[in-house]
Design a protein around this nucleic acid. Sequence first.
DNA 1: TATGAATGAGCATTCATTCAT
DNA 2: GATGAATGAATGCTCATTCAT
Lengths: 202, 202, 202, 202
Amino acid sequence: MTKDGQTRQPRAERTRRQILEAGAELFSREGYHATSSKKIARAAGISVGSFYNHFRDKKELLLAVYREHVEKVHETILAALQDADFAGGRRKGRGLVEEIINQTLRVHSLSPELHRQMTALRYTDEDVARVVAQEDQRVADMLVRMLSEGGALRVDDVEAAAWVVLASVEQIVHAIKMSEPPIAGERLVAALAEMVHRFLYP
Amino acid sequence: MTKDGQTRQPRAERTRRQILEAGAELFSREGYHATSSKKIARAAGISVGSFYNHFRDKKELLLAVYREHVEKVHETILAALQDADFAGGRRKGRGLVEEIINQTLRVHSLSPELHRQMTALRYTDEDVARVVAQEDQRVADMLVRMLSEGGALRVDDVEAAAWVVLASVEQIVHAIKMSEPPIAGERLVAALAEMVHRFLYP
Amino acid sequence: MTKDGQTRQPRAERTRRQILEAGAELFSREGYHATSSKKIARAAGISVGSFYNHFRDKKELLLAVYREHVEKVHETILAALQDADFAGGRRKGRGLVEEIINQTLRVHSLSPELHRQMTALRYTDEDVARVVAQEDQRVADMLVRMLSEGGALRVDDVEAAAWVVLASVEQIVHAIKMSEPPIAGERLVAALAEMVHRFLYP
Amino acid sequence: MTKDGQTRQPRAERTRRQILEAGAELFSREGYHATSSKKIARAAGISVGSFYNHFRDKKELLLAVYREHVEKVHETILAALQDADFAGGRRKGRGLVEEIINQTLRVHSLSPELHRQMTALRYTDEDVARVVAQEDQRVADMLVRMLSEGGALRVDDVEAAAWVVLASVEQIVHAIKMSEPPIAGERLVAALAEMVHRFLYP
DNA sequence: TATGAATGAGCATTCATTCAT
DNA sequence: GATGAATGAATGCTCATTCAT
């Protein structure tokens, strides 16, 4: 059936979308454990059985939601990279460092609660851990490429450096956005930028 | 009840101890959610009712277990600080940086799974978040004091610097110990030490 | 607690009894699969949770119910064995054969539907198969003893003979009681008695 | 549709075949209850809807599968009956008895798990009970005919005798093939043969 | 203080069957 | 005839907490 790829699964695709949206909403607002399959179905306007026709189980939905989120993040980043302003002078040195931090801040604002959930679950659930680690690596690779192209680095082991920098930035941005650190965010961001800059560049 | 003079410890205190030990063991081995009050009682050799006589609920036990763990950690650190060798030359510069990282590595080996559990829960549970943040701050204060005493710093905002450094170290050590990062631990530790050192010292 | 064995678990024992009775009733009337834990709890006048406090799962209840049934059966049989009339002359030959068949008929009347359920489940469930086989063996041992004491047998392999005889009797009585065989029960019983008698005795 | 003359079989018939084969396979391998209509459809390479176009429901398929199995069994038996060797001397006396037992053993090897399933279901499901009973009767009739032609019987009520013999043989063979009786199969078969022989023949 | 039976809402998932296309 | 998405009741079982003894 379906002579052309377009018309494939007319209803099915729409249902899947509804479930994905309901899932994103609920996982973020109530957390993974507090989101029952019944709630998902109700929020998506379908039956429980239908949910399980489209996703093997709750976790598969979680990962699908996360993957969609991650794609959105990458689009955001790629768009920024092509920004003329950025190309102007922010591809290395202090400019790059600030860009990294700002992007991370922006990404965290995109769907902060989903992010929090995934961070919690990665310590608890193998599958989540694997998927999140993959994504981290993908970003690290991207940074390695940018650093290599930027020239004049102070570090030898660029791969380790990229990984360490991203882990630190991620952790600190996360703390700023999600908890209320006892020190003002701006001071932390300033210190962070300083630390990363001195590390990477002469 | 006390047949011999040995049993100076009031019975209540002894029961509490048993519960704390059972809790530490179970939370670490099976995780917080998988540890039911029934299991705790059985492992402690008491009844469920008795457990609830000593702790308001499961979370109170978790926090008590965590506090005990944290005390042990501090004792370890303080012991190290009084170590002659350390006093010799590791109170500033590269020596201090390495000391921080090593201490963190050691602490993570003390009770890695309990640590993992707390890390997961801090993103999910307000009370856990608060208690863990307090502890983080306590360590940060300690570092601020040491940095101030060590002289010749490159940073202005010592408080923010201490916080940023500890967050980074904690995160990276955690990743090394708990997951399997795609880059060898030694390379990450080396990069981390380099980053922190360049940041703090001229 | 409980200084004497009598007073042990006052409430608990009663609850257990209620569950056992509800289980016996429901498994017989509705079948094992159609009997939900909710139904059992309601019929026993307790909560679902309480049911699971007393039995690990539904199957454990089934086996407990079966064991009680089996004990009742054995009491019936033992009572019959001490019957003066029986002792009179029914311990061997035609008398014994008829006694076996009659006992089996009587036992099948004791709780026919439970019996049917167990028979169905033994083909499907390992645990049930094991327990029912044990019971079968216990009865076979008893018959072996009686045959050995009765003297003048025509068979060499008494154990195999006992097993084969009981299996046949059981099967045919079962068919008579539970389905409606196309031949009148009396004719089948007569043929069965004849077969067994000719087999065992000269 | 039929591009070549080969495809004489109407499509409907072919689909039905695929379903029957998938059903036989699955019911045997996984059991009736564990076989969902979805699985059947997938194994048959068709859609769920299509399955319900060909069979009213799952049970109808089960019975159809069983009927096919039974036909195969009868072909096997009839083939054996026309075997010269058999005609030679195994149509009565010890020869016949052994033939009955061997045939039953062979039949049980043909599709042992399907057999087990039907045996379990006949105690639980009216329709299955009826169909299996019909088949039993058909075999009994066949035996009655053979016994009558063999002459020199010791029994008066040939019909009841045939029924009783088949029930016993069936039960014991079943136990040997499906469970692990506590007595070696050969001893049981020997006892069984002895019992049946003494019963039927002078 | 200690005990452990009782509670009951809650959860993830399955499955036979229907029916619009 | 064929398709496969949709349905939703039903199931076995868990668990933190309470409270009468």
